[in-house]
């Protein structure tokens, strides 16, 4: 079962969740997210221990929570590529408790369960991840399923994976040499159509 600290709205996952068994939380009225029907059990590689500045209270204990949008200072000079400037910190971080994240429904979420924050918007991707079609499995194929969190690979502030140098390409067997082919880029259908139209005009 997912080690869920907090839940997401049943609404977000209306079609996907298995809420009937779990009763709504009396205090908050939220139905905690307990996973998808028929998804095999898994646990998530903890993340919190890897965070450089954790616990955040080290500093934030001495600061007043301030929700105004302003220029960020060291050590948090992040550029928000995520959402192309539509978000401010507290879309994901809990304003009144920096030790935690916050789900779309306002529920606090541990850094170890950050996928619950991501899944709030990226529902289908989250489902694929929970079933194993997205993301990476840590352990073997047969034992307990331990999978990596979204934020292991994606920088939450700039989630697109950066291009990287590829490793060396193939060689040919000892004693032979490869001659590179002359590549004529074959025009795509739409490119072909374009040049034909130009011909007509002429």
């Amino acid at each position: 079962m997912i080690r869920t600290v907090a839940g997401l709205t049943a609404l977000t996952f209306a079609a996907l969740a298995v809420p009937p068994v779990t009763a709504a939380d009396e205090e908050t009225g939220f139905t905690p997210f307990t996973g998808y029907a028929a998804a095999s059990e898994f646990s998530v590689v903890p993340r919190q221990g890897e965070l450089v500045f954790f616990p955040c209270s080290q500093c934030h204990e001495f600061m007043e929570p301030d929700a105004t949008i302003r220029e960020l200072m060291s050590p948090h000079e992040v550029e928000f590529k995520h959402g192309q400037g539509r978000f401010w910190c507290y879309a994901c971080h809990k304003l009144d408790n920096r030790e935690q994240l916050v789900a779309v429904n306002g529920e606090p979420v541990s850094f170890d369960d950050s996928h619950l924050v991501c899944g709030g918007c990226h529902g289908l991707r989250h489902k694929d991840w929970a079933f194993g079609a997205h993301g990476k499995r840590q352990t073997s194929w047969t034992e307990d399923r331990v999978i990596y969190n979204c934020t292991h690979c994606h920088d939450a502030h700039d989630p697109v994976i950066k291009p990287r140098e590829p490793m060396a390409g193939p060689g040919v067997r000892t004693g032979l040499e490869r001659v590179a082919p002359e590549r004529h880029e074959k025009p795509k259908v739409w490119q072909r159509r374009d040049s034909q139209e130009q011909k007509h005009e002429q």
């Binding site: 291009p163 990287r164 140098e165 590829p166 390409g169 590179a180």
Partner: peptide, 13 residues
């Protein structure tokens, strides 16, 4: 047949 087996750009993809 249009595939490149030996691609070697500075960065991929």
């Amino acid at each position: 047949e249009e595939a490149d087996h030996y691609y070697d750009p500075d960065t991929v993809p």
